[in-house]
Design a protein around this nucleic acid. Structure first.
Lengths: 226, 226
DNA sequence: TCAAAAGTGTTAAGTTTACACCCATGA
DNA sequence: TCATGGGTGTAAACTTAACACTTTTGA
């Protein structure tokens, strides 16, 4: 074909970097890697990987996410492309950042261990390699913009959750306290957040009703506000 | 350095594609190119270009934008990276989309002509090359999300504008009609949208007061709502 | 003199916020 | 029996939405 046209132009390494968010003990967390190889071995970084020749960039991100979590279907969105000339000290690499939301207990501890990956609180992050902090900040911005108007927070929780857990999740993401009664009033108005028969007894003596997010019921309504 | 590490990984062409928005006659418009070269000569497309070896991707976008508009400092934001394997029928190309907002009368008609570029209404777009329509749709989404909470619309207007123009701009971007009195009430509460002494007589017999957006005054307030 | 766009306030409806006490249970 | 987290409603403040007529002037 007309591939000759393209030959005069330079080529670049293209990578993906993944910001994996989790939630535990009222804290929003990111999965960081203590880089297990050179260059810059031992430094904190996001988990990344190069895009393969016959692989969509989204699929490269899925592959990297899977390799670190063991999860196949997770919520993932592109954050953006990072392409400063000297962003990677080793070579010119254009990297595309993705963020993912996972239920932290579903993530393979085995794979985390193998990859020297650890959960760190988003508001106590160590110094990071290259422009990875910038990537996290942009991902956080995406998340904070998305979360009040789309029911995405549920991906960070187990399938059954209490309203207290849900509220603490929103407080952690948005960085502000929410009035308990107002919060529950709003949640109760959403037909796709369903009360179950189950009771959680782990966090209180009295026990708390467990709720479930019903994706199908949400399809009918398609409206969510904080 | 440790560049050996990178050598085993594939390299790709990296391009930028620019969605240039303008506003004229109550219509939001995009600058499209009738592709003047092979492959796919004659098809409608966004204006794009390959990233140079020692060029930040943002700078590549600025270069392309300048080459088509003649403008140096324009409002520009990244939309995202597009990297499906077969998105470009010629070769594997990862493309990063940017959108820009311009005052349509500032754009060089000369350069538009040289590049076979034409302004088209966003809601009457022709069939476009590759995934360029997808890029425009994502850019529109960005714009529509941004516009009600950030004072970016002004980049689409001349330095002095009437409130009717401003309202029509918002109506065109958001695709909904706005109540005139409510709109003007809100605008009047924003100290950084300043009345001038000038009167516009082009669009009405009576004449309309011209306003100006004061970027510095906005820095102090930093709040804008619709 | 009339057509066409500019300009101007009030009221009702809806939304958001603030706020405090009782309940159930395991230790 | 008491400490802990779970659960519940109302009223005031604020924000948003709906609505119609007068002004100016060039043709």
């Amino acid at each position: 074909m007309s591939t000759i046209f393209y030959q005069q132009y330079p080529k670049f390494h293209v990578a993906v970097d993944c910001i994996i968010f989790g939630f535990k003990k009222c804290q929003l967390k990111v999965l960081l890697q203590k880089r297990p190889f050179e260059p810059r071995q031992g430094e904190w970084s996001l988990m990344g990987g190069f895009v393969n020749r016959d692989e969509d960039i989204d699929d490269a991100a899925k592959r990297v996410l899977r390799s670190l979590t063991g999860l196949h279907d997770l919520y993932m969105r592109q954050v953006g492309a990072f392409g400063s000339v000297h962003r990677d000290s080793g070579n010119r690499v254009v990297s595309i950042a993705y963020f993912a939301l996972v239920d932290i207990d579903n993530v393979s501890k085995e794979l985390n261990y193998q990859n020297s990956a650890y959960w760190e609180d988003v508001d106590h992050l160590p110094h990071l390699l290259f422009d990875h902090m910038e990537m996290i900040n942009k991902a956080l911005l995406c998340l904070r913009t998305l979360v009040p108007s789309r029911p995405v927070g549920f991906h960070l929780l187990p399938p059954l959750f209490t309203l207290t857990q849900l509220q603490q999740l929103y407080e952690a993401i948005l960085g502000e306290t929410i009035d308990k009664r107002n919060f529950r009033k709003r949640i109760n108005e959403m037909p796709f957040i369903e009360k179950t028969e189950e009771i959680d007894r782990k966090t209180s003596k009295r026990g708390a009703i467990l709720y479930r997010f019903n994706q199908l019921a949400y399809q009918d309504v398609k409206m969510f506000k904080l």
